[in-house]
């Protein structure tokens, strides 16, 4: 990898990745896991070809460390790297304001067809910080929280969130019990992908999760 010199990159060439994207793709920062993280988040899945897992360490309402693992293209890796760089040292409330467009801008732009990578990373962060609020007792698990999680659960057949296209049928929440109903055939390959994604997204929260596949 060392033989390539990103400084000489012609940004107009090929699929239109910026120099910054290529630099971070070749040498991503903050790769790995945090032992005993304050909170984790997972957006997307390998089945969708695009996934980010975030590990955050939060002390006194400030993100003191962030690491990631990804599965995906150059834009996915670069976006994850940029996101962690942007949030380390930031107060939680500040980090909440980061939108996907901020990531695109910080990367010196992304090809439009790759915007979903930045959206996914931003959703991952939103999920992590919402989970942190739940862990802190500042937020309760209600339908808006469930929908926030599902926004980053991606359908491998369409590349869109499971919230798109009438697949989400609603949820029932009773104490620790969270039941999510999806209009997806049980035992289908998509059901397995969805179940795995949703379970991992809820990781670290004290809930009894049930996913009902109907149809």
């Amino acid at each position: 990898m060392e033989r390539f010199d990103a400084r000489k990159w012609d940004e107009k060439k090929r699929i239109g990745y910026s120099r910054k994207v290529l630099q971070l793709f070749l040498n991503p920062k903050n790769v790995g896991e945090i032992e005993n993280p304050s909170v984790t988040a997972k957006a997307g899945s390998p089945a969708c070809g695009d996934m980010i897992k975030l590990y955050l360490k939060i002390e006194d309402d400030r993100i003191v460390d962030a690491k990631f693992r990804t599965y995906g293209c150059a834009a996915n890796i670069a976006t994850a790297s940029m996101l962690t760089e942007m949030i380390i040292g930031k107060p939680v409330e500040e980090a909440k304001k980061i939108k996907f467009k901020d990531l695109v801008e910080a990367l010196g732009g992304l090809p439009q067809i790759k915007y979903h990578c930045a959206v996914l990373a931003a959703e991952g962060l939103r999920q992590a910080l919402a989970k942190w609020d739940v862990i802190q007792g500042k937020r309760k698990i209600d339908e808006s929280f469930v929908k926030l999680i599902l926004a980053a659960v991606i359908d491998p057949l369409t590349g869109e969130s499971v919230l798109h296209g009438h697949k989400y049928l609603g949820c029932e929440i009773e104490g620790k019990k969270v039941k999510i109903k999806l209009a997806i055939p049980k035992d289908s390959e998509e059901a397995i992908v969805f179940e795995e994604q949703i379970r991992e997204s809820f990781e670290g929260l004290d809930v009894d999760l049930e996913i009902e596949f109907l149809g």
Partner: peptide, 28 residues
């Protein structure tokens, strides 16, 4: 690993081929 990443890395090291990854296709 995902094909487009593999392809891009290899391209920069002087090896070209193609991939069946969604990221590489125009239809995703």
């Amino acid at each position: 690993v995902e094909g487009e990443s593999v392809l891009l890395h290899c391209d920069m090291r002087g090896l070209v081929f193609s991939t069946g990854s969604a990221c590489y296709s125009q239809e995703l």
